[in-house]
Design a protein around this nucleic acid. Structure first.
Length: 561
RNA sequence: GCGCCCGUAGCUCAGCUGGAUAGAGCAACGGCCUUCUAAGCCGUGGGUCGCAGGUUCAAGUCCUGCCGGGCGCACCA
């Protein structure tokens, strides 16, 4: 519909150029927007204001000339010039409802496109180290990363979901020492408890499972415990597997699956880290100082140089990060998105700088980052900081257990990534219209309920069956709904291109709102069967779009509530 | 001190690439269930878009400075 208007304007602009009214040495692209106010029609363009200078006349005058050159179209009812020179398009009622047929014909495909043309995109998200249960922040990353993945898939991209984690390093040592301490009967308050040890109750679970010689199977590994509390290597291997499995269970409960688990240790095993260092040295971007090896990241916009190899000979996390991203590049991903907490923001410049120093033709701004801000959890207006199991933070599992997967996903994806998020447990649990998840799901369930009612009277209607004469739909509420349904495909494009999944939640809230208004104002199961069928067709279209949108969020669309 | 993010109604937040009188929900107040799920709907009130400049025909949106909050500034990830 909007495309139609754009095409009409493009045609008129071309005519004006050929007539010499507009210069041919610059191009004019009509910007067609949705109107906020119905008095401004269905669509509006500001092209006359933009092009007025080039045309050398007043915007309103240009608008008038432009309109006179517009090709005739049955879809447009009326065109007006308003304000400083906006061109407002009023679409015909009949054309507004074409979208209903379109939706029912395309069903779950409605809103999807092939914009990406099968191009590969890799999204790395969550990437929690196996040192404890996932926390709320990981949950936000999981909700955003997975929704973004689904959005990109809906736009025709081939998405690889990847989870990167460190299974060696200092923190894993701390983990092993903590489990060992528990296995030897120590508790976090004992004097001999390891410094920087992990204090959560779950450490004791790991220790007990280790002593019981359990076997754990995670998505990417299986380990049987040795049971010897003095064997630190065995303790470490078991602890990593145990906590990996735990995270897998959390993710499964959250409805998130990964295609690839990538281990930091594999970069060492394969010699990739060594190779990367050598490359950086050979390119002349390194120097020795204070017994450490530094990379001149300041040559690429960092505010200070960074240590790559520590005085003890070990590497900092930064180097494997560079090696890892080099590996991503070598795997052929032109588009890579890293979804991370904003507390890791400082790695962005460093990783990009390291990749530039490799001199491999990797683009400057590669890879992309989506950084989400912190999450605060509240209950009864008070901040919740602790969970018994993890000790110092609220776990994702706590939320899923308490408010359910649907509400957790929705709430964690519902805010712009760069604003801090307050997760209100009471709100997420509430079953009233103040809870957007239930509000949207209820709209879907209501439509299903009406259809059940209809079938009780002997009339079965398939999910995609449009038997109604749409020209019978004349109400404002009906046109509002149709217009909003028509905006869905554009929303899917924008949300993916901007990497802003929260738009989807707002759209669905609004669509559900329009539906509830309509539902309450006008009965659908009425004696006038022709009008009834037309309305049922619109209902079916609304249900389809609600279902499609919820699916992209990973939230269920219940048939009854 | 330096870097990044945020600052919109009492509260929680939208506002897409600058566009026409700034929008929702909640909370407050007043209505609607012999009628398809009231987990719903309708109505009313509520705003110097943190402050000050600048760019523009047009600024919540872009630029600069300041104020306030968060995060980061480790040879931790």
């Amino acid at each position: 519909m909007k495309d139609t208007v754009t095409q009409l304007l493009e045609s008129a602009l071309a005519t004006l150029q050929s007539e010499g009214i507009l210069p041919t040495n610059q191009s004019f692209t009509p910007n067609v927007g949705n109107t906020k106010d119905k008095a401004h029609g269905d669509y509006a363009s500001n092209i006359a204001l933009i092009a007025a200078k080039a045309a050398g006349c007043a915007p309103r005058q240009l608008a008038e000339t432009l309109i006179s050159r517009l090709p005739a179209s049955g879809a447009v009812d009326k065109i007006e010039i308003a304000g400083p020179g906006f061109i407002n398009f009023f679409m015909s009622t009949a054309s507004s409802f074409e979208v209903v047929n379109d939706i029912l014909a395309r069903a779950e495909q409605y809103g999807r496109n092939n914009f990406g043309n099968g191009a590969s995109v890799q999204i790395e998200f969550v990437s929690a180290n196996p040192t404890g249960p996932l926390h709320v922040g990981h949950g936000r990353g999981a909700a955003i990363g997975d929704c973004l993945s689904r959005l990109l898939e809906a736009n025709g991209y081939n998405v690889t979901r990847e989870f990167y984690y460190n299974d060696a390093g200092v923190q894993i040592k701390n983990l092993a020492l903590s489990v060992q301490a528990r296995a030897k009967g120590l508790t976090p308050n004992d004097e001999k408890w390891p410094k920087d040890g992990y204090r959560g109750d779950y450490i004791d679970d790991v220790a007990q499972a280790y002593l019981a010689k359990e076997t754990v199977t995670a998505d990417d590994r299986e380990v049987t415990a040795v049971g010897d509390a003095d064997d630190l290597d065995a303790l470490q291997a078991f602890a990593v597997a145990y906590l990996r499995r735990e995270q897998d269970l959390d993710l499964k409960a959250f409805g998130v699956e990964f295609d690839v688990y990538f281990l930091e240790s594999s970069l060492y095993d394969s010699g990739k880290v060594e190779e990367t260092v050598n490359r950086l040295i050979a390119n002349g971007y390194t120097y020795e100082q204070d017994g450490a090896l530094w990379l001149k990241t300041t040559a690429f916009g960092d505010d200070k140089d960074r240590v790559m190899r520590k005085t003890d000979g070990g590497y900092t996390y930064f180097l494997p990060d560079v090696a890892y991203h080099q590996n991503k590049w070598e795997r052929g991903f032109n588009t890579v998105i890293n979804e991370q907490g904003a507390d890791h923001h400082s790695t962005v410049t460093r990783v990009r700088a390291g990749l530039q120093a490799l001199n491999e033709g990797i683009p400057k701004g590669w890879p992309d980052y989506v950084l989400h801000q912190m999450v605060m959890v509240t209950r009864s207006g008070e901040e919740v900081k602790l969970s018994k199991r993890a000790g110092s933070y609220v776990t994702l599992r706590d939320l899923i257990d308490e408010v359910g997967c649907d509400a957790t996903r929705f709430f964690l994806a519902a805010r712009r990534v760069d604003s801090q998020l307050t997760f209100d447990i009471d709100l997420a649990r509430s079953q009233t219209n103040e809870n957007p998840v239930y509000y949207i799901q209820y709209a879907h369930a209501r439509i299903c309920s009406v259809l059940r009612k209809l079938s009780e009277s002997g009339i079965e209607r398939g999910f995609q069956e449009c038997v109604g004469d749409l020209s019978l739909l004349t109400l404002d509420e009906e046109k509002d709904l149709a217009n909003q349904l028509a905006q869905y495909p554009e929303l899917i494009r924008n949300a993916a291109n901007l990497r802003e999944p929260h738009h989807l939640t707002h759209y669905l809230r609004e669509l559900a709102g329009h539906f509830h208004t309509y539902y309450n104002a006008h009965k659908v199961l009425i004696d006038d069967t022709a009008l009834r069928d037309a309305r049922i067709s619109l209902y079916l279209a609304v249900r389809q779009v609600l279902a499609n949108g919820l699916d992209l969020l990973g939230v269920s669309a219940p048939k009854e509530m």
